[in-house]
Amino acid sequence: MKYVRFKADSEIKYGILEGEVIKLIDGNIMGDYRIMDEYYSLSEVNLLAPCQPGKIVCIGLNYLDHAKELDMDLPEEPTIFMKPATAVIGPGDVIEYPEMSNHLDYEAEIAAVIKEEAKNVTVEEVKDYILGYTCLNDITARDLQEEDGQWTRAKSFDTFAPLGPVIATEVDPNDLKIQLFKNGSLKQDSTTAQMICDMEEVVSFISQIMTLEPGDVITTGTPPGTSSTEKGDKLEVKIEGIGSLINSVG
């Protein structure tokens, strides 16, 4: 199943995407809902970010092939940071290049969407708390990250968390092809099987630190090949079984 959030008839709605058709949902995708006898063509709606997270919790170095690329030791436990909800944009939205930065990087990532409150969840329990999975592009002002010595400013600008296009419920997050294309050219090409800490380990670890709430997004690090992007570039995060998240830089 693939959940979508979209705007049609001047209203924000939720639905289930089947091919090029969206079946309208009445209710809460995090809880109870019913499928309506109302349909929309994908081409006639404006897809939005598929959820509205209260927080986005992110993992730093978490791919074996990325660690090898950087010649870095593997972390003993996940390194986490956060992005604000105000950084979220949806498919087709523009990533704004901030005036105070001269170097933006793209980072393709797979992310989990939490469906119910989670605290001190074991690895074995994690799947019961996840609604599904989506694409995220962790845009980073790399020059500011290096200047500050910590990551908050570099990761937190408005538009720095493109998210979508769907929440896919029937995929194995630990064994999916993950890619990023810049202007149609393949720049990142790996698999989530390369994650040092898998999805369940990541979510469980974070739940030991903070309470996760419905709609929160947990994103899991990026594979090798991250590099700079400029105004006018088109970036596509493509994850097997989920889809393509496309945004331009402006």
Rank of each mutant, 00 (worst) to 15 (best):
M1D: 07
K2Q: 12
R5D: 11
R5M: 08
R5A: 09
G15N: 07
I16L: 13
L17R: 03
E18M: 03
E20C: 07
V21P: 10
G27T: 08
G27N: 09
D32L: 09
Y33R: 04
M36E: 12
Y39H: 14
S41L: 13
L47W: 00
L47D: 02
P50Y: 05
G54C: 06
C58A: 14
E69H: 12
M72Q: 13
K83C: 04
A87K: 06
I89L: 08
G92Y: 00
E96V: 15
Y97P: 07
P98F: 09
E99K: 14
S101C: 11
D105F: 13
E107G: 02
A108V: 10
A112C: 07
V113C: 09
V113W: 08
I114F: 11
K119H: 07
V121H: 01
V123R: 11
V126H: 03
V126C: 02
Y129K: 05
Y129C: 08
I130C: 01
L131T: 05
Y133N: 04
T134G: 02
T140Y: 05
R142L: 15
D143Q: 10
Q150D: 13
R153G: 08
K155Y: 07
S156E: 00
T159S: 13
F160P: 06
A161T: 02
A161W: 04
L163V: 03
V166A: 00
I167S: 02
E170H: 15
V171E: 09
N174V: 09
Q179W: 09
L180T: 14
F181T: 06
S185Q: 14
S185E: 15
K187V: 13
D189C: 07
D189Q: 07
T192D: 03
E201Y: 00
S204G: 01
F205H: 12
I209C: 09
G215Q: 11
V217C: 13
T219P: 01
T219K: 04
T219I: 06
T220C: 10
T222A: 04
G225N: 06
G225K: 04
S228K: 12
T229L: 15
K234M: 14
K234S: 11
K238A: 14
N247K: 12
